[in-house]
Amino acid sequence: MSADIRTLLASHGGLPVDVATLADDADLYGAGLSSFASVQLMLALEDTFEIEFPDRMLNRRTFASIRSITDAVTELVAEREAAA
């Protein structure tokens, strides 16, 4: 999953740096993730993983690092699978 998230981050994050050089806990805002790009990334994640980010997750912290995104997506995928 982390690999998929990295791919989406590379295509939608608009980062001025190579995503491969970023550690899982690197600060994405420090790396140049804008508010606009984080929304685009969120939409791509929702599509790819068939999830919907609830309001409580629509904040800065969720998109602060590859790890925090992975945690959020993992949680939402688990919820979807549990509900299915």
């Binding site: 508010s35 606009f36 929304v39 969120m42 939409l43 609830p54 309001d55």
Partner: peptide, 13 residues
């Protein structure tokens, strides 16, 4: 413009 972008993901109460 910025808000329009955010509205793409916001869920209305």
């Amino acid at each position: 413009g910025n808000t329009a972008n955010l509205l793409l993901v916001q869920r209305q109460d």
